[in-house]
Design a protein around this nucleic acid. Structure first.
Length: 189
DNA sequence: TTGTTGATTTGCT
DNA sequence: GCAAATCAACAAA
């Protein structure tokens, strides 16, 4: 029960609220990670969400307990990391789109094969490669190793806008980012 | 410099 | 068989 609250965030809240609160939170995977600067929210009534059509072999983690990880393969090539929420019994989650590298940068550079720090985590696929996220972490609790979450600092400014890379419900402004951050995958208006 | 296209797995029709 | 919550290589100007 109490395990649904991590880093000061209640993962039982609606996914767009969780997405907003995740901005600025520091997340580490096996000691490698950084500060979240960009997220997107998805819920069970969203045509763009994987959970829209009910549980499948791939997305069952989204219908599991909140504050857990949902990892899926995108376009057959990349991994994408989500934090699971629960919204009135429907599958819901928050896609981690970008973060600012803080800890274990050497490891990220090695895994990504680039020394350009801008390209380490500025996108969901890159981020997962940099942090070593694979399907082995699907369904894992965010409260237990290798995950580690630290609360966001106070007074940060969050901006929102339409989501990216989807073809449905494009107008829903459920993309959130840290205002003025250069680490996002695409700048906000 | 910007724009377009290929790669590859998974799930649904 | 087709489409997808992406990324990076390559072509053109």
């Amino acid at each position: 029960m109490s395990s649904t609250i991590l880093a000061g965030i209640d993962f039982l809240a609606p996914s767009h609220l969780v997405a907003r609160q995740l901005i600025g939170v520091t997340v580490l995977v096996d000691g490698v990670g950084g500060r979240i600067v960009e997220t997107e929210a998805y819920d069970g009534e969203d045509p763009a969400s994987h959970s829209y059509s009910g549980p499948t072999d791939r997305n069952f983690a989204m219908f599991g307990p909140p504050a857990h990880a949902y990892v899926y393969r995108s376009y057959g090539i990349h991994w994408c990391l989500n934090f699971v929420c629960r919204e009135e019994g429907h599958g819901a989650g928050v896609l981690i789109r970008a973060l600012e590298p803080v800890t274990g940068i050497d490891t990220m550079v090695e895994r990504r094969g680039t020394r350009d720090h801008w390209l380490l985590c500025s996108g969901p696929g890159k981020l997962c490669q940099a942090l070593g996220v694979t399907r082995a972490l699907n369904g894992q609790s965010l409260a237990a190793p290798p995950f580690e979450l630290a609360p966001a600092p106070q007074g940060i400014e969050v901006v929102s806008g339409p989501r990216i890379g989807i073809s449905k419900a494009v107008d829903v402004p459920w993309r959130f980012g840290l205002a003025g951050s250069r680490w996002v995958s695409k700048p906000f208006r």
